[in-house]
Design a protein around this nucleic acid. Structure first.
Length: 313
DNA sequence: CGTACACCCTGGCCGC
DNA sequence: TGCGGCCAGGGTGTAC
């Protein structure tokens, strides 16, 4: 399918709705399907509702690895166990089992879970080539993990040693947690000379922010993605912390409502229509009221940044 | 240690 | 219209 030509496009900004003038600039209305913190949290809620308290009657691995190999004994360690609950740390999903083990799961870029309710069983879709893990629950429901690009992972860890697991030990602050403050961010950035955009993607500083929300938060905080990190501490760090929280919370709210919609239809979790102020909008007018700038695209660290050079400094 | 970049993978988009 | 090529991205590993 080709990208639609822009006729009129609505974008939400600070609660006010801005409508782009008709133009000839091709704008993709890209469906966001890269899991960042809000998407992972939405998936966590869906899985928790479907799995908590139930036994995993059968767990099937349909290949030997994703980004990493499944650990030896994965299926036997998990099969027959009861799911005590689902937690999230950064973009990792943590499924606690009743034998003291926790399943660590990451969606990578294209990982997705689908919940097939028991009553729909005769009409369940057959498994495709990218359906790598199948959890059959004791109530007859089925949870399928699919991941075309296989950047995701699934592994096991004793719950008592979870905090020192190599994947989790070096993670920075949760952006929606109490420890993520202007002072914390200022201290983390003070001696860094990389661009602030790259620092926001560094999971040792703050977790859960991917390329899209990094761009959106910098736009809302009116900070250029090119600004050197060590010039952010102080007032800008305060704006940035507020902007990160606002952007993630708005996406979480959208995810929650889409979860209810999807649960009624095909049970697919965490993927929803979402529009962005700057992400993937190169050439579009800046949506900030009163700003006449044009959104630009910039390559930083092998990744695309989108920003308004007129109002982000 | 901080920084920069290659790499993993495949669907989808682009140009020819 | 068909096909080859390139790009997207998170996280880790390596080289400077």
């Amino acid at each position: 399918m080709r990208r639609p030509l822009c006729t009129a496009q609505a974008v939400r900004y600070n609660g006010a709705e801005t409508v782009f003038a008709p133009g000839r600039i091709p704008l993709s209305v890209r469906r966001k399907d890269m899991p960042e913190l809000p998407e992972v949290e939405t998936v966590r809620q869906g899985l928790a509702a479907a799995m908590t308290g139930l036994r995993l009657q059968e767990v099937t691995l349909r290949r030997a690895d994703l980004r990493l190999p499944f650990p030896d004994g994965f299926s036997p360690s998990v099969t027959g166990r009861r799911v005590m609950g689902l937690r999230r740390r950064a973009k990792y999903l943590l499924m606690d089992l009743d034998n003291g083990l926790t399943v660590i799961m990451h969606l990578g870029m294209s990982g997705r879970f689908t919940i097939l309710p028991p009553e729909a069983q005769p009409a369940w879709p057959s498994l495709g080539p990218h359906d790598h893990v199948v959890f059959d629950l004791e109530d007859g429901a089925r949870v399928v993990y699919a991941d075309p690009r296989r950047f995701g992972l699934m592994t096991l860890c004793a719950r008592a040693r979870l905090d020192s697991h190599p994947l989790l030990a070096h993670l920075g602050a949760e952006p929606l947690g109490a420890s993520f403050t202007a002072d914390y961010l200022s201290a983390a950035l003070r001696r860094r000379r990389t661009a602030i955009k790259s620092a926001l993607l560094d999971q040792k500083i703050v977790v859960g922010i991917g390329n899209i929300y990094a761009c959106e938060a910098l736009f809302q905080a009116r900070i250029s993605p090119r600004r050197s990190s060590h010039t952010v501490p102080g007032r800008r760090a305060g704006r940035l912390v507020d902007a990160i929280r606002a952007v993630l919370e708005a996406a979480l709210a959208a995810g929650g409502s889409s979860l209810r919609d999807y649960a009624r239809t095909d049970g697919e979790l965490g993927y929803f229509q979402h529009s962005f102020a700057v992400y993937d909008r190169a050439g579009a007018p800046c949506p900030r009221p009163g700003c006449s700038g044009t959104i630009r695209r910039l390559a930083q660290g092998g990744r695309s940044s989108f920003y308004c050079p007129a109002c982000q400094r």
